[in-house]
Simulated scan of single mutants.
Amino acid sequence: MIGLINFSHTEPLAMAMDNRTYIREHPRDLLAHVLDGNLECAMVSLVSYLENRDRLAIMETANIHSRRGTLSTLLVSKGKGIEKDMNIAITAHTRTTSFYLERILSAMGITHRSITRQGTLAADLLSDSDYALVIGDEALEVFNGGYRILMDIGYEFSRIFSMPPLYAVTVYRKDQAYPREDHDLLQDGVAQSHLFRAKAVEKMSTTLHIPRSVMDSYYRCIEYDFNPLVRGTADFVQRELVS
Protein backbone atom coordinates (compact mmCIF):
# COMPACT_ATOMS: atom_id res chain seq x y z
CA MET A 1 0.00 0.00 0.00
CA ILE A 2 1.19 3.50 -0.94
CA GLY A 3 0.78 6.65 1.14
CA LEU A 4 -0.07 9.90 -0.69
CA ILE A 5 -0.35 13.32 0.94
CA ASN A 6 -3.92 14.54 1.38
CA PHE A 7 -3.29 18.09 0.14
CA SER A 8 -4.61 19.47 -3.13
CA HIS A 9 -1.17 19.38 -4.76
CA THR A 10 -1.45 15.59 -5.03
CA GLU A 11 -4.96 15.53 -6.55
CA PRO A 12 -4.05 14.93 -10.23
CA LEU A 13 -1.66 12.15 -9.22
CA ALA A 14 -4.25 10.50 -6.98
CA MET A 15 -6.87 10.71 -9.73
CA ALA A 16 -4.49 8.99 -12.13
CA MET A 17 -4.06 6.00 -9.80
CA ASP A 18 -6.36 3.19 -8.68
CA ASN A 19 -7.63 4.35 -5.28
CA ARG A 20 -7.38 0.79 -3.99
CA THR A 21 -3.58 1.07 -4.15
CA TYR A 22 -3.10 4.03 -1.80
CA ILE A 23 -4.30 5.93 1.25
CA ARG A 24 -4.17 9.72 1.60
CA GLU A 25 -3.21 11.26 4.93
CA HIS A 26 -1.24 14.12 6.45
CA PRO A 27 2.52 13.79 5.74
CA ARG A 28 3.23 13.58 9.48
CA ASP A 29 1.00 10.50 9.75
CA LEU A 30 2.44 8.97 6.59
CA LEU A 31 5.93 9.28 8.05
CA ALA A 32 4.81 7.38 11.15
CA HIS A 33 3.16 4.68 9.03
CA VAL A 34 6.21 4.01 6.90
CA LEU A 35 8.56 4.03 9.91
CA ASP A 36 6.26 1.58 11.72
CA GLY A 37 6.11 -0.67 8.67
CA ASN A 38 2.38 -0.17 8.15
CA LEU A 39 3.03 1.19 4.65
CA GLU A 40 5.57 -0.08 2.15
CA CYS A 41 6.22 3.46 0.94
CA ALA A 42 4.82 6.94 1.40
CA MET A 43 5.23 10.59 0.49
CA VAL A 44 6.76 12.62 3.32
CA SER A 45 8.19 16.10 3.56
CA LEU A 46 11.76 16.49 2.34
CA VAL A 47 13.05 17.63 5.73
CA SER A 48 11.26 14.76 7.51
CA TYR A 49 12.98 12.30 5.19
CA LEU A 50 16.39 13.88 5.79
CA GLU A 51 15.88 13.76 9.55
CA ASN A 52 15.21 10.01 9.24
CA ARG A 53 17.63 9.14 6.45
CA ASP A 54 19.36 6.57 8.66
CA ARG A 55 16.17 4.48 8.35
CA LEU A 56 14.62 5.73 5.11
CA ALA A 57 15.66 5.92 1.47
CA ILE A 58 14.26 7.95 -1.41
CA MET A 59 12.45 6.17 -4.21
CA GLU A 60 13.16 7.79 -7.56
CA THR A 61 9.51 8.23 -8.40
CA ALA A 62 6.61 10.52 -7.42
CA ASN A 63 7.56 13.67 -5.52
CA ILE A 64 6.21 17.19 -5.11
CA HIS A 65 8.27 19.93 -6.71
CA SER A 66 7.44 22.96 -8.76
CA ARG A 67 8.51 24.71 -11.89
CA ARG A 68 9.86 27.94 -10.38
CA GLY A 69 6.73 29.42 -8.74
CA THR A 70 4.59 27.32 -6.41
CA LEU A 71 1.56 29.49 -5.43
CA SER A 72 0.98 27.41 -2.28
CA THR A 73 3.99 28.70 -0.31
CA LEU A 74 3.45 32.38 0.41
CA LEU A 75 4.85 35.09 2.65
CA VAL A 76 1.93 37.41 3.37
CA SER A 77 0.99 40.42 5.48
CA LYS A 78 -2.05 42.53 6.22
CA GLY A 79 -0.51 45.35 4.21
CA LYS A 80 3.09 45.92 5.25
CA GLY A 81 5.89 45.45 2.75
CA ILE A 82 9.14 43.55 3.21
CA GLU A 83 11.41 45.21 5.77
CA LYS A 84 14.94 44.63 7.04
CA ASP A 85 13.70 43.26 10.37
CA MET A 86 10.61 41.06 10.36
CA ASN A 87 8.63 38.96 12.84
CA ILE A 88 7.14 36.06 10.87
CA ALA A 89 4.52 33.64 12.18
CA ILE A 90 5.16 30.18 10.76
CA THR A 91 2.80 27.25 11.05
CA ALA A 92 4.22 24.30 12.96
CA HIS A 93 3.02 22.09 10.10
CA THR A 94 5.88 23.04 7.79
CA ARG A 95 9.57 22.33 8.04
CA THR A 96 10.66 22.26 4.41
CA THR A 97 9.12 25.57 3.32
CA SER A 98 10.34 27.32 6.46
CA PHE A 99 13.84 26.05 5.61
CA TYR A 100 13.56 27.62 2.15
CA LEU A 101 12.30 30.89 3.64
CA GLU A 102 15.24 31.02 6.05
CA ARG A 103 17.72 30.61 3.20
CA ILE A 104 15.95 33.16 1.00
CA LEU A 105 15.86 35.87 3.65
CA SER A 106 19.47 35.21 4.58
CA ALA A 107 20.50 35.58 0.93
CA MET A 108 18.54 38.85 0.75
CA GLY A 109 20.20 40.18 3.90
CA ILE A 110 16.92 40.38 5.82
CA THR A 111 17.00 39.69 9.54
CA HIS A 112 13.90 38.09 10.99
CA ARG A 113 12.45 36.19 13.90
CA SER A 114 10.33 33.10 13.30
CA ILE A 115 7.37 32.54 15.63
CA THR A 116 5.99 29.01 15.51
CA ARG A 117 2.20 28.75 15.64
CA GLN A 118 -0.19 25.79 15.56
CA GLY A 119 -2.60 27.58 13.24
CA THR A 120 -2.53 27.26 9.46
CA LEU A 121 -4.87 30.02 8.24
CA ALA A 122 -3.49 33.43 7.31
CA ALA A 123 -5.95 35.11 9.69
CA ASP A 124 -4.75 33.04 12.65
CA LEU A 125 -1.06 33.44 11.86
CA LEU A 126 -1.41 37.20 11.41
CA SER A 127 -3.42 37.70 14.60
CA ASP A 128 -0.33 38.80 16.53
CA SER A 129 2.38 39.05 13.85
CA ASP A 130 2.93 41.44 10.96
CA TYR A 131 3.98 38.66 8.60
CA ALA A 132 3.09 35.01 8.08
CA LEU A 133 4.30 32.02 6.08
CA VAL A 134 1.20 30.29 4.73
CA ILE A 135 1.41 26.94 2.94
CA GLY A 136 -0.74 24.38 1.18
CA ASP A 137 -4.44 24.81 0.58
CA GLU A 138 -4.55 27.67 3.08
CA ALA A 139 -2.06 29.57 0.92
CA LEU A 140 -4.23 29.08 -2.16
CA GLU A 141 -7.15 30.59 -0.25
CA VAL A 142 -5.12 33.80 0.14
CA PHE A 143 -5.78 34.48 -3.56
CA ASN A 144 -9.41 35.16 -2.64
CA GLY A 145 -8.17 38.51 -1.33
CA GLY A 146 -7.73 40.33 1.95
CA TYR A 147 -3.96 39.97 2.32
CA ARG A 148 -0.84 41.29 0.68
CA ILE A 149 1.25 38.61 -1.01
CA LEU A 150 4.90 39.54 -0.56
CA MET A 151 6.69 36.49 -1.84
CA ASP A 152 6.13 33.14 -3.53
CA ILE A 153 8.69 31.07 -1.63
CA GLY A 154 9.06 28.52 -4.41
CA TYR A 155 9.72 31.20 -7.02
CA GLU A 156 12.27 33.05 -4.88
CA PHE A 157 14.11 29.85 -3.96
CA SER A 158 14.33 28.88 -7.62
CA ARG A 159 15.45 32.38 -8.63
CA ILE A 160 18.17 32.69 -5.99
CA PHE A 161 19.51 29.14 -5.89
CA SER A 162 18.78 28.04 -9.49
CA MET A 163 17.10 24.78 -8.53
CA PRO A 164 13.48 23.63 -8.25
CA PRO A 165 11.87 23.80 -4.81
CA LEU A 166 11.26 20.24 -3.64
CA TYR A 167 8.65 19.71 -0.94
CA ALA A 168 7.95 15.99 -0.61
CA VAL A 169 9.54 12.71 -1.67
CA THR A 170 8.45 9.09 -1.69
CA VAL A 171 10.41 6.94 0.76
CA TYR A 172 10.66 3.37 2.00
CA ARG A 173 12.43 1.72 4.91
CA LYS A 174 16.01 0.70 4.20
CA ASP A 175 15.62 -2.59 6.06
CA GLN A 176 12.69 -3.62 3.84
CA ALA A 177 12.71 -4.93 0.29
CA TYR A 178 12.42 -2.26 -2.38
CA PRO A 179 8.68 -1.91 -3.20
CA ARG A 180 9.04 -2.38 -6.94
CA GLU A 181 5.33 -2.89 -7.60
CA ASP A 182 4.47 0.33 -5.78
CA HIS A 183 7.24 2.11 -7.67
CA ASP A 184 5.73 1.04 -10.99
CA LEU A 185 2.23 2.10 -9.90
CA LEU A 186 3.55 5.52 -8.93
CA GLN A 187 5.45 5.88 -12.19
CA ASP A 188 2.29 5.11 -14.15
CA GLY A 189 0.41 7.68 -12.07
CA VAL A 190 3.06 10.32 -12.70
CA ALA A 191 2.95 9.64 -16.44
CA GLN A 192 -0.86 9.91 -16.57
CA SER A 193 -1.40 12.73 -14.05
CA HIS A 194 -1.47 15.52 -16.64
CA LEU A 195 -4.60 13.95 -18.13
CA PHE A 196 -6.46 14.63 -14.87
CA ARG A 197 -5.38 18.24 -14.40
CA ALA A 198 -8.65 19.73 -15.68
CA LYS A 199 -10.73 17.39 -13.52
CA ALA A 200 -8.63 18.29 -10.48
CA VAL A 201 -9.07 22.00 -11.22
CA GLU A 202 -12.86 21.63 -11.25
CA LYS A 203 -12.97 19.54 -8.09
CA MET A 204 -10.56 21.57 -5.97
CA SER A 205 -11.77 25.00 -7.06
CA THR A 206 -15.23 23.95 -5.86
CA THR A 207 -13.96 22.27 -2.69
CA LEU A 208 -11.67 25.12 -1.65
CA HIS A 209 -13.81 27.96 -3.08
CA ILE A 210 -10.87 29.19 -5.13
CA PRO A 211 -11.10 30.62 -8.67
CA ARG A 212 -10.54 28.05 -11.40
CA SER A 213 -7.85 30.26 -12.90
CA VAL A 214 -5.82 30.01 -9.68
CA MET A 215 -6.15 26.23 -9.50
CA ASP A 216 -5.28 25.88 -13.17
CA SER A 217 -2.12 27.97 -12.69
CA TYR A 218 -1.30 25.96 -9.58
CA TYR A 219 -1.48 22.58 -11.29
CA ARG A 220 0.65 23.89 -14.14
CA CYS A 221 3.36 24.66 -11.54
CA ILE A 222 3.30 21.34 -9.66
CA GLU A 223 5.29 18.42 -11.04
CA TYR A 224 5.77 14.83 -9.87
CA ASP A 225 8.57 13.37 -12.00
CA PHE A 226 11.89 12.47 -10.40
CA ASN A 227 14.82 13.92 -12.33
CA PRO A 228 18.44 15.02 -11.75
CA LEU A 229 17.33 18.53 -10.74
CA VAL A 230 15.10 17.07 -8.03
CA ARG A 231 18.00 14.98 -6.75
CA GLY A 232 20.16 18.10 -6.79
CA THR A 233 17.74 19.99 -4.54
CA ALA A 234 17.53 17.06 -2.12
CA ASP A 235 21.33 16.92 -1.93
CA PHE A 236 21.55 20.69 -1.43
CA VAL A 237 19.07 20.68 1.45
CA GLN A 238 20.86 17.74 3.06
CA ARG A 239 24.20 19.55 2.90
CA GLU A 240 22.68 22.70 4.37
CA LEU A 241 21.01 20.84 7.24
CA VAL A 242 24.16 19.02 8.31
CA SER A 243 26.52 21.98 7.86
Rank of each mutant, 00 (worst) to 15 (best):
H65P: 01
H65V: 00
H65D: 00
S66A: 08
R68T: 11
R68N: 14
R68I: 11
G69L: 07
T70Y: 07
L71F: 14
T73F: 05
L75A: 10
V76K: 02
K78F: 02
G79A: 13
K80T: 04
G81M: 02
E83D: 12
E83T: 14
E83V: 03
M86F: 14
M86H: 11
M86W: 11
N87I: 12
N87H: 14
I88C: 03
I88F: 04
I88K: 06
A89D: 06
I90R: 06
T91W: 01
A92P: 00
H93S: 14
H93R: 15
T94F: 10
R95N: 15
T96P: 10
S98C: 10
F99I: 09
Y100I: 01
L101H: 10
L101R: 12
E102G: 05
R103K: 15
R103L: 11
R103D: 08
R103C: 07
I104P: 02
I104W: 02
I104L: 10
A107L: 00
A107Q: 04
A107H: 06
A107Y: 02
M108V: 01
M108C: 04
M108F: 02
I110A: 02
I110Y: 01
I110M: 03
H112Y: 15
I115H: 05
T116E: 06
T116K: 10
R117Y: 07
R117C: 10
Q118S: 14
G119P: 14
G119R: 13
T120C: 03
L121C: 11
A122S: 10
A122I: 04
A123C: 03
A123I: 01
D124P: 10
L125Q: 08
L125S: 05
D128H: 06
S129D: 05
D130M: 06
D130E: 15
Y131F: 14
A132D: 05
L133H: 04
L133E: 09
L133I: 08
I135P: 01
G136V: 09
D137N: 13
E138T: 13
A139Q: 07
A139W: 07
L140Q: 08
G146Y: 11
R148C: 11
I149S: 13
I153C: 08
G154E: 12
Y155P: 00
Y155T: 00
E156W: 08
S158P: 00
I160K: 05
F161L: 04
M163E: 07
P165C: 02
P165A: 12
L166D: 02
Y167H: 15
Y167S: 14
V169T: 13
V169K: 15
V171A: 06
Y172R: 00
Y172I: 06
R173A: 09
D175G: 03
Y178I: 07
Y178W: 03
P179V: 04
R180M: 09
R180D: 10
D182L: 12
L185M: 09
Q187S: 12
Q187C: 07
D188A: 13
V190P: 12
